[in-house]
Simulated assay, not measured.
Amino acid sequence: MEDEFILFKKFDDAVLADTLIDLLEKHDIAFQVEETLISGNSAAMDGQQKHYIVKIHPDDVLMANQAITEQQQEDTQLLSEDPHLAAFTNAELTEVISQEDEKGSADYQMAQKILVGRGAHINDDTLPTHPQDSLSDLSAQQPKHTTRIIIGYFAALLGGVLGILIGWNLSSHKRLLPNGKQVYAYSEADRQQGRQITWLGIIVVILLVIYRIYKAL
């Protein structure tokens, strides 16, 4: 009967309501959902300004609160085990959840929970229109770094150590994409130059050590 259900939670974000509904279904807790327009708001008719009211039986309130607490603890544990998503900005997290072919992935689920926890509103308007294109742009390597390469060669010839560091950075530095994938930050040509700078710096350091040992004899 209708009067057997009481107000449990009220949201103005469909994602927040869906998250709770998924949790209630997981624990076999009966519920009802009502959508009401926010009074006095003419923009409500666009479907974005609504209240989502979740009702459950009075006897299930304790069980539902316990389920929420356990889920929060589980989410906290997952973040502690894999904290890289926690460091993402809201825009980067939105990029993760925009990958429609990855909705079943742990990253997708966790990114959505982090955004919800931050109070971010998630809807079709906030998701990138072409997520794959956006990721392609992010994964594109940086343009040629001629100045850094020249400095690296000079540093390698003058003392070695700084040149080694610059060369190592050019040859191996990677960037983390919002979907968790790592890509090289520099082009293959720049990475090749970086490897050459690194080896040049190592050779110069070895020669300097040999020279100082020879002078000390």
Results as ranks from 00 to 15, higher is better:
residue 194 G to C: 00
residue 203 I to F: 13
residue 140 A to P: 00
residue 28 D to I: 04
residue 28 D to C: 09
residue 187 S to Y: 02
residue 215 K to Y: 08
residue 217 L to Y: 06
residue 72 Q to G: 00
residue 38 I to G: 11
residue 146 T to N: 07
residue 86 A to K: 08
residue 40 G to C: 10
residue 57 H to R: 07
residue 86 A to F: 07
residue 134 S to G: 15
residue 40 G to D: 10
residue 46 D to R: 08
residue 80 S to R: 06
residue 121 H to A: 10
residue 114 I to F: 05
residue 42 S to R: 08
residue 13 D to A: 13
residue 21 I to H: 04
residue 205 V to I: 07
residue 120 A to K: 14
residue 80 S to H: 10
residue 26 K to Y: 12
residue 83 P to F: 07
residue 26 K to M: 09
residue 46 D to P: 02
residue 180 G to S: 00
residue 207 L to N: 08
residue 78 L to Y: 04
residue 192 Q to W: 05
residue 183 V to Y: 03
residue 201 G to T: 02
residue 86 A to V: 04
residue 59 D to E: 15
residue 144 K to L: 15
residue 84 H to S: 06
residue 62 L to T: 12
residue 96 V to R: 01
residue 162 L to S: 11
residue 31 F to N: 01
residue 122 I to Q: 02
residue 30 A to M: 08
residue 205 V to T: 10
residue 123 N to F: 11
residue 93 L to M: 02
residue 1 M to P: 12
residue 65 N to D: 12
residue 158 L to E: 09
residue 118 R to D: 00
residue 39 S to Y: 06
residue 112 Q to L: 10
residue 10 K to T: 15
residue 217 L to R: 07
residue 90 N to A: 02
residue 180 G to V: 02
residue 123 N to Y: 13
residue 32 Q to R: 04
residue 24 L to H: 06
residue 180 G to F: 00
residue 174 K to R: 02
residue 10 K to S: 15
residue 38 I to R: 01
residue 146 T to S: 12
residue 96 V to S: 05
residue 47 G to I: 14
residue 183 V to H: 01
residue 84 H to A: 04
residue 42 S to C: 09
residue 20 L to H: 08
residue 81 E to G: 04
residue 57 H to L: 11
residue 186 Y to L: 00
residue 175 R to C: 03
residue 95 E to D: 15
residue 109 Q to G: 01
residue 143 P to W: 02
residue 196 Q to E: 08
residue 136 S to K: 15
residue 100 E to W: 02
residue 16 L to V: 12
residue 98 S to T: 08
residue 67 A to S: 03
residue 61 V to M: 06
residue 55 K to N: 11
residue 206 I to W: 09
residue 15 V to F: 15
residue 131 P to W: 01
residue 198 T to E: 14
residue 3 D to Y: 11
residue 96 V to Q: 02
residue 126 T to Y: 04
residue 7 L to S: 12
residue 6 I to F: 12
residue 26 K to H: 04
residue 161 V to E: 12
residue 67 A to G: 00
residue 142 Q to L: 14
residue 29 I to K: 03
residue 191 R to P: 00
